[in-house]
Design a protein around this nucleic acid. Structure first.
Lengths: 362, 362
DNA sequence: TGTTAGCACTCGGGAACAGTGAGTGCTAAA
DNA sequence: TTTAGCACTCACTGTTCCCGAGTGCTAACA
């Protein structure tokens, strides 16, 4: 059931007005803001119908109307102007990205910083790896005289290391043997037989047994996929919004933020859309009831993608935020794409790595 | 100039009263709270003298008095009862530490969580390494067909790795040679001659040159000491305090928190004292003017120490907080000590690693 | 039939105001 | 030196009142 044009225009105006002022909007003020002359009475009629349809709410009888969550949803889906970011803003973002990427050695952190500063909202950012990376190889490196080793795991796209502190030294030659056995087990995909066999040959009390067990744990952990790290930038900016002037509310949300895994789950839910918008109740969490999350994802490499978004009151400038997020994704994909392409090209021409490449890989 | 006994008792009572109620304390209420009968008029006289001496302040003429920062300082230095933590609380802490240490793989995070939950304040925690760790060895590991290597650096106490993405493949044998050269240069302490010599033999455009340069950067970076990671737990708890009901103030402090390096600097300033207390203006930052920081440090290994503390309004229960921090340090040093001792003992008896050991090294 | 003008009604919020009570400083007596 | 007494201050609270923005309804109008 399509909303008639005039209702759409009115609803859009109400949402935008409310986004800007955070105050219930009344019929009179709204009538004035239209260029086509239309009386406040007419608007009142339309409003009361929109209210019946569930798009508007009255805080109390003699106040104006406030958009419902359904209204925000409709606004985002159909009403909102998908405006482009001004070129000077784009330029600013590009600059910001460049400087941030240089100064901070992590794309996730940079992403949240850039988006946070651009939108002046709380930004969240994380990296999501598709599937657990299979461990391809393992190296053992003696750190000191032999009672500390570092286990280094090589996966398809990453290298991880972990210190193994042993209760007694293990000879380098023994470690080397263990390493060979491990790599054999890895390549033959027979990891589960390794521990029993070590137990048999060396005994369950041996340092080697302990070591093997630790390494296997480490491998399992790595393949299970590390819990993704979630970064949050500018949580304090939340307090700038009228809806969080009440410390109780603010506390709830900040508390929610501090449980990164919840935020991470939310972000993981990104579907194929370029921009995902979750409004208020759609976030499924009471403490976030009057907030919205807008986020997008970008490819970092074939099985890694970054997700970045902002969390702000449901009354937020969706048009602005989505535009900025889009611009960001484009910019970053540009950088990434160029980098990947370079790598390929370079395979033939052996040309020098460029500045961009260096920035992000650092 | 020593404060007479009665003034001390009155000041102490005022501070403690204010800590509990967050409300200006008046002469009458205070007189009642003393067991030795003493009239409110007398207290008024004493109070007005204490005010002259700079220990008390009046929010306005007909309110009670509020302790000044100087009063807090005096309270912490001389007046406060250094009470011990109740044994059941100690037990709770021990349990908490055990579970946290198991579930979170990082001592810094655990420390802040435990202290944060114990005190119900915002906890900060970091690790500070004495001096840049010298790199002792370097390994190169091929990740894929040769265009990606991982550089693994071994320092006295740690192992770090970093991916080197190359524009063109480098043969494993070449990498091995580079590795040997690197280790030679490291052991002979002649790193600065390496790059020029690679340039000469391989050319400045070569992948090996690029690789060497990246590795040298990485080494330099590692030896310079990574910027310490600072963890903050329960920032939202700040909002529970009356002094941060005002969102403006709260925002300032949260903003301050988000700049970890500032917090880190503060913590680094720990001197030899078991407990450090920085009250209000002593924090040297306008946004922290009415907050205090109480922190302590504990040894992790010979040149690594952990620092943990809490940030809360200047009106905080110093006695409680310091006691809890002390208890924490003791507990953690106990764990660490046992671990170290075990390592040594184990050298002779080759006994199994214990649970504690495993917990913290994970 | 849809739109508009007019009107009575609602109700949150701000201003004005008075009363309360916890607090103070001062003075004079114990 | 301490204390009782007293006058004074002033934040805070509750009440009342009024304003005005906003609504719904009705009747006139295009």
């Amino acid at each position: 059931m399509e909303l008639p044009e005039r209702k759409r225009r009115i609803l859009k105006a109400i949402v935008e007005n409310y986004i800007n002022t955070a105050e219930p909007v009344g019929s009179k003020a709204l009538a004035d803001s239209f260029d086509t002359p239309i009386s406040s009475a007419t608007i009142r009629n339309e409003m009361s119908e929109l209210e019946e349809m569930g798009y508007l709410e009255k805080p109390h009888v003699s106040a104006g109307r406030v958009p419902s969550f359904a209204a925000y949803r409709l606004y985002v889906n159909e009403l909102m102007d998908r405006h482009r970011v001004a070129t000077n803003e784009l330029e600013a973002m590009r600059l910001m990205m460049e400087s941030k990427m240089r100064e901070i050695d992590n794309i996730v952190v940079s992403a949240s910083k850039v988006i946070g500063e651009m939108t002046q909202h709380t930004a969240v950012s994380m990296i999501s790896r598709k599937g657990g990376d299979r461990v391809k190889r393992c190296e053992l490196i003696a750190v000191d005289s032999g009672s500390t080793y570092a286990a280094v795991l090589v996966t398809g796209s990453d290298v991880k290391n972990k210190m193994l502190r042993l209760a007694a030294p293990v000879a380098p030659s023994t470690a080397a043997m263990l390493c060979t056995a491990l790599n054999l087990a890895i390549s033959e995909n027979r990891l589960e037989y390794l521990l029993p066999s070590v137990a048999q040959s060396m005994g369950e009390d041996s340092q080697v047994y302990q070591m093997t067990s630790d390494i296997l744990d480490f491998i399992r952990q790595t393949e299970a996929g590390s819990k993704p790290e979630v970064y949050i930038d500018g949580a304090a900016r939340l307090l700038d919004n009228r809806e969080y002037q009440d410390t109780g509310r603010a506390r709830e949300v900040l508390e929610y933020f501090s449980d990164r895994s919840k935020v991470g789950e939310l972000l993981e839910s990104a579907d194929g859309d370029p921009i995902n918008v979750r409004i208020g109740p759609e976030l499924q969490d009471p403490s976030m009831r009057d907030a919205s999350l807008v986020f997008t994802s970008y490819q970092i490499d074939p099985n890694t993608r970054g997700i970045v978004g902002i969390i702000a009151p449901a009354r937020m400038d969706y048009a602005d935020v989505t535009a900025k997020l889009m611009a960001f994704t484009q910019a970053i994909s540009g950088v990434m794409g160029r980098q990947r392409k370079q790598l390929k090209d370079a395979g033939e021409t052996d040309e020098q790595r460029t500045e961009n490449d260096e920035d992000t890989s650092r």
